[in-house]
Each structure stands twice: as C-alpha cells, then as structure tokens.
C-alpha cells in the first residue's frame, strides 16, 4: 500500500524531495505520452489508413513534427473575442488539462511505481476525468460564440450521458476485485485463476468482456473521439467549444485530448488487461518497477490503437443517435452486467 513511501524511506528522501521527483516524472511522462500517441496514431497511422505518408520532413520520419507544431502554436497571437468572459475563457483550457493531469496521479505502473496509491483510486479517476466537462462547458460559454456554446452544451450532454455507462462498467470490475484501489485491482487479476489455471492470472477482460466493451465505447465518447465527436463537429460547429481559441490555449486543449486518451487507455489496461503485472513474476517483485512500465506502455499502445482505429474508421453519429445509444443500450446493458457480476460474486 505504502510501497512508494517505504522506498523513499529506504533512500532517505524527505517528503518534499519525493514529491518533487514525482512531479518531475509526471511532467516528463504526460507530454511525452501525448506526443507519442499524437505521432504514432494521429499522424502516422491515420496517414497509412488513408494511403498517405504523413509528416516526412521534420526529423527522421517526421518524428519532430508535433514539436514543430507546438513551437508554431507558441508563436501565435493570443486572441480573445471582444465579448468573451476573459477570465473564464483563459481558465477553461487549464481546467481541461488539469483534469487529464490529475488522472495520471493514480495510474499504477509497478508495485511501487505510482504517484499516489489512493484507496479509492478508481473512484478518484472517474471523478477527476469528469472535471473536463466543466472546462469544456466553461470554454463554450465564455467564448461568446454560438457555435462554441452549442459545442459546449453538446459536450455537457454527451459527457454526462456517457459518464454513467463508464462508471457502471467499472462497477463490474470493482465488484469482482473487491476493491476501489487500482493496485488491488491489478493484484486481483494477477492472483486470480481461470478454472484453476493461474499462470496468466485472470485478466478481467475475460470475465468482464461486456464491461470492457462498454468501457471502451464510453471512453471513446468521453474523449470526444470520432464516432462521438459532436462537440467539436467540424462540419456543423466549425470546431465547437474551441472555435475561438488560438495559439497555446488551443494547444492545451489538444494536449489534454491526447493525454486523456492515454490515461483512459491506461485505466482500461489496469482494469481489464492485467495492468503492469507480468506472468511468472511475484506480485511484489522489485524488478517489476522497471519492467512494469514497459509492459504497461505496450498494453496502453494496443488499447489506444483500438481507440484511434475506431476514430479513423467511422463517421460521426447524429446527436439523437448518440443519446439514444447511451441511454437505451449502454446503460441497461451495463446495469445487467452489474447484476450478473453480483450474482456470480455471491454464488461462486
């Protein structure tokens, strides 16, 4: 539980030193994660799926393209609409980005490699991930633009609608693992058995496959990725809630979107794919603090691949189809999933 604290105690680190190391790692990991997903999937995979090459000229194979883009964004003028609510307008992208930064706090990548091992980790993750709705709504309202406002309202309606199946899908995992703590969820998968066969543990994707599907679909909607990207619908809303944003404020929205995609992939990995645990190792083996993050990264990339694959394949749904799908299909299905999981939990 307090593995990181013990490790810090062994190394003789003060609280402030431990905290600043964690902060530094988070500040490196989060933008790197966003760049990695952005380059691999948004630029390259999308290009290949459309029989293009993607960026070629900046760095080897265009690897530095996103950094060049970021530099370009930083050079741009910071424009506020004349009638905008300036304070709220400025705060909105920060709120959205803060929400995705906070998500990274509880993500475990090894027995001790976690920023803060909260007892209510998954509850916390769900709670801070819905903070981004607030930022989006702030952006839409403060822009004093009807497209932005419509985008903000759509985002609010959509994110609230899909928050429910997301959390209900997580409930199944929580019931099965007997814990809200993400490390304990990983442990439950590592020490679980499939019909007495415990070599690969029991990744919950096997027992909670419906939950996994619902989680992925809702995550797609939470991230406003393309079949569910009505809040930023290019054709109808010319960009939705971030239509008035320029320069680095737009960059913050973009970074938050990709970083949140990374964080949600990590959550799916932890809850359904066995997290950082490698079959054959003890759950507390110190080597997993080094190997765990690597395994985690590979699994995250696989999950993120699915998210972006779906994004580049499907066209946008209509607003009423989106709501109907959430309330009439996903929520009943996830409730049924909880009931069935609960029955099995009691009986077996």
């Amino acid at each position: 539980m307090s593995g990181a604290a013990e490790l810090a105690g062994l190394l003789g680190l003060a609280y402030w030193a431990e905290t600043s190391i964690k902060l530094g790692v988070a500040l490196i990991v989060i933008p790197t994660a966003a760049l990695l997903l952005g380059y691999l999937f948004l630029l390259k995979m999308m290009a290949f799926m459309q029989s293009r090459l993607g960026p070629q000229d900046v760095g080897p194979y265009g690897t530095l393209q996103l950094i060049a883009d970021a530099v370009k964004f930083l050079q741009k003028e910071d424009i506020h609409p004349a009638t905008a609510d300036r304070r709220v307008f400025r705060a909105a992208p920060v709120v959205v980005l803060a929400s995705s930064f906070l998500l990274f706090v509880v993500l475990p990548t090894g027995p001790d490699a976690v920023v803060e091992n909260l007892d209510t980790g998954i509850f916390y993750a769900m709670a801070v991930s819905s903070l981004s709705v607030l930022g989006v709504l702030m952006a839409g309202w403060a822009s004093a633009n009807k497209y932005a406002l419509l985008g903000g309202l759509r985002a609010a309606g959509q994110l609230i609608a899909y928050e429910l199946p997301l959390i209900l899908a997580v409930m199944g995992v929580v019931i099965q693992a007997d814990s809200l703590n993400l490390q304990e969820i990983v442990r439950a998968q590592a020490e679980g058995e499939i019909f007495g066969f415990g070599l690969i543990g029991n990744p919950f994707i096997l027992t909670q496959f419906i939950g996994f599907l619902i989680f992925m679909i809702s995550a797609q909607a939470e991230l406003t990725q393309t079949p569910f990207d009505m809040p930023v619908a290019e054709t109808e809303l010319v960009g939705g809630f971030h239509v008035e944003y320029t320069g680095f404020r737009f960059l913050l929205f973009f970074m938050a979107e990709v970083a949140t995609a990374f964080a949600f992939s990590a959550l799916a990995t932890v809850m359904f794919l066995g997290g950082w645990w490698i079959p054959g190792f003890d759950f507390d083996a110190p080597a997993l603090n080094v190997l765990g993050p690597v395994v985690m990264l590979i699994k995250i990339l696989v999950v993120a691949f699915i998210i972006f694959w779906i994004r580049f394949t499907y066209p946008r749904l209509r607003e009423d189809q989106l709501q109907k799908f959430a309330w009439k299909v996903l929520i009943p299905l996830s409730l049924a999933n909880i009931v069935v999981t609960g029955i099995f939990k009691v009986v077996v």
Binding site: A47, F48, M49, S51, W309
Partner: peptide
C-alpha cells in the same frame, strides 16, 4: 477496410 489500407500502405 481501414486496417487493410494501412497494411497495404505500410
């Protein structure tokens, strides 16, 4: 379709 296009391109 998208996966096949990506594979053929790559």
């Amino acid at each position: 379709v998208t996966a096949r296009t990506a594979a053929r391109t790559l």
